[in-house]
Design a protein around this nucleic acid. Structure first.
Lengths: 375, 375
DNA sequence: CGTCTTTTGTATAATATTGCACAAAACTAG
DNA sequence: CTAGTTTTGTGCAATATTATACAAAAGACG
């Protein structure tokens, strides 16, 4: 930190928090001379490139800087429950190539790590690669104690509890590795992509399950043991209180998650196994599916209102499979938030849908990897 | 920041995050030479003093450092609804003197600021003063947008909405002023006093009202507009849902706050106006009061569980008038948290009572003031 | 075209910090 | 007492940063 003003500058630009030399001087507190010198060094070294100049307000327009997308590449890996995906990105977040592989999280972790290692090796020899791979980010579908690098039990990742994933994978592929849980990384990707200047941010994923990532002061809030944002298992007093996957009754998930809506729709005679099926029924215009989404939306709205009351984010983004229902899903969330929260908390609150892309998870993992790049 | 390694060192020691030179080197990243030099300068300037040496583990014991309590004094001011209190502190947090004054927050803010100004002036000539007053911290019983220095409407502070309190008071007394709301400052005081190494901390105040302060990464989480931690008005599905002071129904406060318990006890024929009366009945051993506290405790437990699920603090402290009931108040909170939250979130969670002191509010204000001291 | 404004570049002396090597101090354990 | 461990102090050359002042660049505006 002391050693490297250049690193601080690079990180600011990379995160979109500074675009011009003036921004950089203001954000870092560096003097003009130092900023000038370091910036030109970064450009000479190929880390930064000149971007478009900012609009002028009567004076010389400010020169904009961008990260050189082709200085390095990174790999983002998303481990799903039955499939893994490793994508190669340049530093602008553009996807260059990908590898998909089957996996079984209940099997020996070593097998899964083999798959990841293979996928990274394939990407390393990809024709699309534009620069050396500098780091790998990994998204896992389980709560993670980032301090120890271990998944928390119980989760879908049986047998992983004693493995320091970061270290184990790093030793295999010989690159810096960063790991976090999937929802945190969706949150990170959405913030970096679409809300780079928002420092108090929340992302709720409503798909088969329900989870949430929270950013405070521009950083992911992981909590003391890595479980912050666990609103899927906040319990409601609603009757009847259906049994949840976690063994408790009346959790948010048991009312509103994809698996719960699918369960309800099956009860009405539909063939509906998961969140994807729920959305298919909704797309077909089945009124029962819309009704289920509306009900789910309002239950989600309750915890979203709790979240807004407690965390007071500036932007709240709803993502995940069920968020593709758009306003059908936002309506209840908006309703409950505006009904229940202080005007002061909601006045400036933006409630939005996530970018419609399947790559958000791997992109988040890639963002994490980019944070690992030493300059 | 760049200019002053000494300042960084001083702040670390002041906050209890570093006690020895080794700690300081590790926390700041400074080199040994710089640390040695800056520390001796700080001692020469009277900012730090030598404390007791740490226990040795087979080698030379580390020299401990403390802030010199008598380098400066600060004033913490707590504005209550009918009374204000300004206390003079040294930098160890020892209270040296105090001034109490009547006030009416519904009156012209100028009158109140006059009172505060007078109180500070009195403390400045107090015989107990051990050093020049360096800054003033102010606790206000209303949500505050720290960015603009203004209280949020609606609140008990009618007529204050267009006043930048920090600036207005600073102009009057000619000292740096910091302002925050009361619950945040209780949280800050409790953390600094009793949990200096805890960086993910939460404090719930249950008195006449209910509020909460949250610290993430060692800093108060104020949220985008200063309303973070508003769990007093999270609504529950419990029936009947009593009308709350805020106009909504079924809020946490309407079930569990001091005013609500007093309302219930009045309904049972007791003469009970506020939290203090509730505690008096409890101390007298009235079973109805204990029952009310138990009910309140379990409602509070629900939002506390929500808080733990969302924020995952390492330490949760319960304070305020009703917390003097001790286990009677903690029981329900513990019960609901352990029942509802993930084991991972509760395994290492400490749930404790706040220090039993009326000075926590002014001490929090003083802590805020200490943060304003330029070194 | 000149004037104004804003942004950037450069030079310089004064400070501040790092990394390293070596030494000394102050303990514990046996 | 001796050997080992941990912590602290010091000196020095190489870097890094600041503050400041002045100059130049690049646009808007009339």
């Amino acid at each position: 930190m002391r050693k490297d003003a250049g690193s601080a500058i690079y990180q600011l630009v990379r995160r979109g928090q500074a675009e011009t030399q003036r921004d950089i001087e203001a954000e870092t507190g560096l003097s003009r001379g130092t900023a000038t010198q370091r910036i030109s060094e970064l450009i000479a070294a190929g880390l930064l490139i000149e971007g478009p100049t900012r609009a002028s307000g009567g004076g010389r327009p400010a020169r904009g800087f961008l990260v050189n997308p082709h200085y390095r590449n990174v790999v983002g890996v998303d481990l799903g429950e039955s499939q893994g995906r490793a994508c190669l990105f340049d530093l602008s977040g553009a996807k260059l190539d990908q590898q998909v592989f089957a996996l079984d999280l209940r099997a020996d972790p070593g097998v899964t790590l083999d798959r990841v290692e293979d996928a990274v090796a394939m990407l390393d020899v990809s024709a699309m690669r534009s620069a050396p791979i500098a780091a790998v980010g990994l998204s896992v579908p389980a709560p993670l104690d980032v301090a120890s690098g271990r998944v928390a039990m119980p989760s879908v990742m049986y047998g992983w509890e004693n493995l320091d994933i970061r270290q184990a994978l790093g030793a295999r592929i010989g690159l810096p590795v960063a790991v976090d849980n999937d929802v945190n990384l969706l949150c990170l990707a959405e913030q970096r992509l679409n809300w780079p200047n928002c420092r108090n941010f929340a992302f709720i994923k409503i798909g088969t399950g329900i989870g949430c990532g929270i950013m405070v002061g521009g950083r992911l809030m992981r909590g003391a043991s890595g479980t912050a944002g666990d609103l899927g298992h906040i319990q409601h007093g609603l009757q009847p209180a259906p049994l949840c996957r976690c063994g408790k009754e009346g959790c948010t998930e048991a009312h509103a998650a994809g698996w719960a809506l699918a369960r309800d729709l099956r009860g009405l005679g539909f063939d509906c196994q998961d969140a994807r099926d729920v959305m298919a029924l909704w797309l077909r215009g089945e009124p029962e599916a819309l009704a289920a989404l509306n009900r789910g939306s309002r239950v989600l709205g309750k915890v979203a209102a709790d979240l807004v009351a407690m965390v007071n984010p500036q932007v709240l983004v709803i993502g995940g499979q069920l968020a593709r229902a758009g306003e059908a899903m936002l309506a209840g969330v908006r309703e409950l938030i505006y009904q229940r929260c202080l005007p002061l908390a909601t006045q400036q609150l933006v409630i939005a849908l996530a970018a419609e892309t399947d790559d958000l998870g791997v992109l988040g993992a890639a963002c994490l990897a980019m944070d690992e790049i030493e300059v």
